[in-house]
Amino acid sequence: MRVNFTVNGRPQEADDVWEGESLLYVLRERLGLPGSKNACEQGECGSCTVRLDGVPVCSCLVAAGQVEGREVVTVEGLADYAKQRACASDACGTSLQNAQQWQAKGDSHTGEGTELSPVQQAFIDAGAVQCGFCTPGLLVAADEMLERNPTPTDADIREALSGNLCRCTGYEKIMDAVRLAAARQGEAV
C-alpha cells in the first residue's frame, strides 16, 4: 500500500509498504530516517519515540497505515521543531541567540554549524550520551516534557522518562542533562 504523511515538516510518500510494517520501519528503511531506534519493537524501551500529531508515541507500535495524513516529528527534526516552538512563543530572537551561544559554549563539534535544540546540547554537555542508542528516544520524550513542564522536579523527570530504557549511563547523567536543559530554558525566557 501507499502511505502519505508529513515527517519533520516535509510531505513524504512511501510506496509498496507491507501492511504489517510499523511507522518505525517506514521511517528507518523507506524514508532514510534511521534516527529513531529499533531496540525492542514491543513498546518496552522508548528508543523509537517520535511525536505523532505532537504526542510522544512508540513508532514501533504504530502501524504504517495509521499515519496516513498525519504529522510525525523524529529526532532528525527535533532541532527545527524546538526552534519553531521558540519562535512561536514570541521569543524567537532570544532563543536563537541562545541556541547559538550554547553551541559556542560546547567544545565538541563534529558537525560544525549543526544547530541543536537545548535538550540535545544538554545531553552532550552533561555526558548523557554513551552508546547513544537510547538517546534519540530520550531526547524526543525529554523535549516534550520540558514543553509541558518547563520546571520539572526530579520525580517529574523520572516519571516522564520512565518509558525510555538506557543500559549505559545508570540515568544519572540523563537527569543532569534534563535539569541543565530546563535551567538553560529558564534563563533564556
Binding site: E19, G20, S22, E41, Q42, G43, C58, C60, L61, V62, A63, G65, Q66
Partner: peptide
Amino acid sequence: PIAGGTDVMVEINFDHRRPEYLMDLN
C-alpha cells in the same frame, strides 16, 4: 481492529500473529 496498536503491533512485530485484515480505528 487496531487502535493504539500497543498489543496488536507487538504480536505482528514478533511474528506471533498474521491477520488477514488489519482494521485501523484511528
